[in-house]
């Protein structure tokens, strides 16, 4: 694990790299573990738009077998 890992904003439709950054530190020694790009009001609105559009598109809902496969694979 890198001590200076960076997690950019991963909101579909939002270009990463423009948001503010917060530092995540160890509570034990305050060592910097990573930086994370934060979401502003526009990014949150975009995320909600994306999620809501998925919900409104019933034809695109994930079928149960696909959901089961998604959940099962990481547990193997």
């Amino acid at each position: 694990m890198s001590s200076r890992e960076h997690f950019p904003l991963q909101i579909p439709g939002i270009t990463p790299g423009k948001g503010q950054q917060v530092e995540v530190v160890s509570p034990f020694d305050q060592q910097l573990l990573a930086t994370v790009e934060t979401a502003d009001a526009t990014a949150v609105d975009t995320a909600l738009n994306t999620a809501y559009a998925l919900y409104r598109d019933r034809q695109g809902w994930l079928p149960v077998p696909q959901r089961l496969a998604i959940l099962e694979k990481p547990c193997r």
Partner: peptide, 18 residues
């Protein structure tokens, strides 16, 4: 890990608000 398992990214978004 769930995205790698096939969950489309838009179905599970993670964000830290400013």
């Amino acid at each position: 890990i769930f995205h790698q398992a096939g969950l489309p990214k838009a179905w599970c978004q993670v964000l830290v608000t400013e």
